[in-house]
Design a protein around this nucleic acid. Sequence first.
DNA 1: CTAACAGTTGATTTAAACTCACATGTTGGT
DNA 2: ACCAACATGTGAGTTTAAATCAACTGTTAG
Lengths: 297, 297
Amino acid sequence: MQHSMPPLSALRAFEATARLGSVTSAADELSVTHGAISRQLKSLDEHFGVPLFAKAGRGLILTQHGEQLQSGLSEAFAKLRDSCAALKRDVEEAPFTLACPGSLLARWLIPRLDRLHRELPALKLKVVVSETEQPGIQSDASATLAFAEPPWPAEVEVFELLPEQICAVVSPQLMDHIDATKPETLFANKLLYTASRPQAWPQWASAQGLETAQLAQALNEGQGFDHLYYLMEAAVAGLGVAIAPRLLVEDDLKSGRLVAPWGAIETPARLCLWLPKQTNNRRSEPLAEWLKRELGH
Amino acid sequence: MQHSMPPLSALRAFEATARLGSVTSAADELSVTHGAISRQLKSLDEHFGVPLFAKAGRGLILTQHGEQLQSGLSEAFAKLRDSCAALKRDVEEAPFTLACPGSLLARWLIPRLDRLHRELPALKLKVVVSETEQPGIQSDASATLAFAEPPWPAEVEVFELLPEQICAVVSPQLMDHIDATKPETLFANKLLYTASRPQAWPQWASAQGLETAQLAQALNEGQGFDHLYYLMEAAVAGLGVAIAPRLLVEDDLKSGRLVAPWGAIETPARLCLWLPKQTNNRRSEPLAEWLKRELGH
DNA sequence: CTAACAGTTGATTTAAACTCACATGTTGGT
DNA sequence: ACCAACATGTGAGTTTAAATCAACTGTTAG
């Protein structure tokens, strides 16, 4: 039954020509030259073995066979167009779900969410907390915002937004025991950290040239927290020196609730926007652009 | 509204895959490799920005979006296939009209028509008399059978079936005055001919090496007839010597009603089947083959 | 009678589609 | 548990179909 359908592109050319009444306008609609349409029509004539158009003055009119074909094809192509348009619309109007770790969400994204909604209203953004701190794409999210180190897995597309910086922060009330020019004065205080970033203190210490052994002992005496949120509260309360991504403490540094006496160091990690490969980028690109603008102060 | 439809071939690949449930069987149906289908599906995913299939074991199943698309496309493609098949069927089942000059029809084709109908029943042959003796395609005929000399006009396709031979024929009762080894004994009789073939006697005479002057005079004293039918009756009645295509007098020669004392000569003309260029050859080829067989004795 | 228009066509270029061969991942059988 | 058979994905290269360009034929209208 499936024998010898004519080429679909020829049918489309025929349908457009029959509907619009001329080769030239069909060519315009399909964004090709009139010569291309003319050839397609000729190939259809040959396929069916009868002429589908007859010359009429300087234009064409459908033959009887042509009209018969047109009546079926116009419906078929209308349905084709409708089906594609419907799917496309559904996909584009579906909310765009951005997954994001809770700490980043609470301390950076939420304060900017209102502006984001105002500046990109077409995006219909929905934000969810990503269930894992490990970077990776969440199946139900349109994109994931997270810190992660290269190399990236092959199955996702990654926009790099910002190199990660981490800094040691402390309550101003503890600054008595600290010399900003001497990193080792760090050890006068308890070290505070999050369970999800065990490598943060070693990275920082190594960048500052501190001894591994001393650090190990200090970490042993320090305290871990499940979430950055608690860590920050502990630091503000003066329980010790915390290590955290600079981006997430920037507001606290500005307001003076915390101080970063030794500045910040860059890590290999990047703040990234992760996208599933098959996702159409038309929607995520404006978001990526917005994030870049926002992060560039 | 016509913006950015995906490539039709990708939609067809999707529809076949969704309907048959596997890339491989879709590839079989469309006579391509599974790799080709796989690529088309990937391009569709990218076009819509969502996956349309998900992996399920070692096969694929439709996603929700995929099902949405499939429900529309299957109808659209069914309609497409139906429309094409309907037109094709109508064209193929329409009677095949063969135009043919009356003389050829009466003296050669009609006696064989019964066998032709029996051997090519699918052709649904209808025979009509061509209104003009001049070769050329008739607008309402699927094909035309006629004698004609090359070159052929460009707008038709021509099957050459047989070189034309013409011969001088005479009633056996007139053989007394005729010597088969001496063409000039022709002139003992009246020359008979048809109005539609004034060049026949000169061709024959020149091939036999007769004098032009003598022929001209004999022709002047001869008699023309409007149709080959009358010419033959005149020859059988012993009114003189007639000139005619061998093919059309063969039955009379076999039955002894006429004699061709000097044999036959070949002319530049050919018995041909003329086809309009746009006609599908699938139907005319069996006819051409049948004609060739029949003409080869 | 010319200019603008509409479609066709030969020659060439371009881009999409396909194939091949290999890779990955899944299933069922002995 | 492992291997063979199966099903799909993919990089590289090739093939083929489709498009362009430019020239030509025929038509209409001013």
